[in-house]
Simulated assay, not measured.
Amino acid sequence: MSKQAFHQLIADLSAQIAGRPLDDTLDRWLNAEHGAGTPTYARLKDACIEGVAEGWLCEREGGGIRYGRPFKPEDALHRFSVDVVDMADLAGPHHMHPNGEIDLIMPIEGDATFDGRPAGWCVYPPGSAHHPTVNNGRALVLYLLPEGQIQFTRT
């Protein structure tokens, strides 16, 4: 899949979530409509795997995490940035989500979980914070950040 086709997948999805509060209701809706086992999930996971293999996703590495931001916030993506990370059995750097965060968890090896959650979506509300953690294997995680806002905590 091309980077442009991936962009269109995200644009189609972000059109459905634009303007909705980042909360438990959105979390449940995303998992019901676009969660593991759905065509949307399969297309996004395949696109991320292909993007990593082709080198336009997760092109950077630091602290044992491969990562990248293929798209900055833009109107076509309803002001979401898009990040994808590749993590295996580790905790990433602590950060806060000023406007919230929407994550798509895609296990690649083992029964990988992200922050204790299996394959599917996880929505963090505005002002939440965490150490993003993958356990029990390897996962790709796609992050949608409203306005691309993320604040890393200095340690």
Rank of each mutant, 00 (worst) to 15 (best):
D115E: 14
N135L: 10
R138V: 03
P93S: 12
P93V: 07
R138D: 01
N31H: 07
C122K: 15
G55C: 14
H7S: 00
G63W: 10
N99G: 02
H131C: 07
A88E: 09
T40M: 07
L13R: 01
L144Q: 04
N136L: 05
P98S: 11
K3F: 05
D86H: 05
K72P: 13
L77V: 02
V123R: 13
A119G: 02
A88D: 06
I49V: 15
L90G: 02
P107Y: 08
F71Q: 06
L144H: 03
L57F: 10
V85K: 00
G64T: 07
T25C: 07
A76W: 01
D75R: 14
C58V: 07
K45L: 13
Y124S: 13
D75H: 15
T133A: 01
P70L: 08
F152P: 07
E33P: 00
H95D: 05
I10F: 08
V84G: 00
S81I: 03
D111C: 06
R79T: 10
E50V: 10
L142N: 01
A32E: 12
A53Y: 12
P39G: 01
A129Y: 06
E33N: 05
D83M: 06
F80C: 04
P70I: 07
N99T: 12
F6A: 10
G137K: 03
A112D: 04
N99L: 09
W121D: 09
D46C: 08
K3I: 00
V82C: 04
T155A: 13
G35S: 06
L144I: 11
I105E: 00
V123G: 11
T155N: 10
V52I: 13
A53W: 14
H7P: 02
S81M: 08
H34N: 09
T153V: 14
L22E: 10
V123T: 12
W121V: 01
V134F: 03
D111Q: 14
A5D: 11
W56N: 08
G68Q: 07
R20E: 04
F6I: 08
N99K: 13
R28Y: 06
S81C: 00
M1R: 01
H78N: 08
C58K: 01
S128I: 06
K3G: 09
I102R: 03
F6G: 04
H78T: 00
M96F: 03
G137M: 03
H7Y: 08
F71G: 09
G92W: 10
A47Q: 06
D111W: 12
A11Y: 12
G116Q: 13
A15H: 12
C48N: 07
L142D: 01
V52G: 01
